[in-house]
């Protein structure tokens, strides 16, 4: 029994320590020159861990990291000549946007639960397949005048309706954290079709967003393979 646990932990550990980053490798080309995209409300949270193993939310770090990360994100996007539009945030968001973000959370969780090549991969969603948010994205396109939207979560904030898969994913997130594990998910959605045309998942045991260099490095990692 202990041996099986160790074996499982080894497998999970190997997955993690390797600095697992999984990206979608489908051919994606920008459809227009200005590459306008709306940046959906980012979800970032940092905490610190005391000697006794207590993790305490750190507002100062989070606020700083949020700022640094967004700056890095915008820098990186402008490097590829993308025009970034800020979305409405917090309680100012219109209902359609809130609903769309909730749908994206579910689609994002689904993508992470069923990554091609993993135990819960779906034969009907191979490497080449595309997940979609449907035509509800047209409202967002109209509102912001952008053809694409970038969603960024640097935290695990996904629904657990699919319990079996979520336990698996959740356990991967859980068996590890020694103060300094990053997990995140970024996706690019084509607002004309609703398709998730690019995504990347970040799960690793290093990275520090509390300074400009670290935040930039995290943004780089999260956007690795972002279509240029």
């Amino acid at each position: 029994m202990l041996r099986t646990i160790q074996l499982a932990a080894l497998a999970a550990a190997a997955f993690l320590v390797s600095g697992c980053v999984t990206a979608k490798t489908v051919e994606f080309k920008w459809q227009n020159d200005d590459r306008r995209m709306v940046l959906m409300p980012t979800d970032i949270q940092l905490m610190n861990m005391t000697g006794g193993g207590v993790e305490v939310p750190n507002a100062e770090w989070t606020a700083k990291a949020e700022g640094l990360f967004l700056t890095s994100l915008r820098d990186k996007l402008s490097e590829i000549n993308s025009q970034v539009i800020e979305s409405d945030t917090g309680l100012d968001q219109p209902q359609e946007q809130v609903k769309l973000i909730k749908l994206h959370e579910t689609v994002g969780a689904t993508i992470q639960n069923h990554l091609p090549g993993t135990a819960f991969a779906l034969p009907t969603m191979p490497e080449s397949a595309v997940w979609t948010l449907g035509s509800s994205t047209h409202a967002l396109k109209a509102r912001y005048g952008a053809d694409y939207a970038l969603f960024v979560h640097v935290r695990d904030s996904y629904t657990s309706g699919d319990r079996a898969a979520a336990i698996f994913v959740g356990a991967l997130f859980g068996v590890h954290m020694q103060g300094g594990t990053q997990r995140g998910f970024a996706s690019l959605v084509d607002l004309r079709t609703g398709d998730v045309v690019w995504y990347n998942r970040l799960l690793r045991a290093k990275g520090d967003m509390r300074n400009a260099k670290g935040a930039r490095e995290t943004a780089d990692a999260l956007l690795r393979g972002f279509p240029g």
């Binding site: 099986t4 646990i5 499982a8 932990a9 999970a12 135990a119 336990i167 698996f168 068996v175």
Partner: peptide, 24 residues
């Protein structure tokens, strides 16, 4: 519990090259 039974099964499946879902 550090790892649930389901996780162990899933990991074992991965190691064994099996998939939880098959094609219909």
């Amino acid at each position: 519990k550090t790892i649930s039974r389901t996780v162990m099964i899933a990991v074992a499946l991965t190691l064994g090259g099996c998939n939880a879902y098959t094609l219909a």
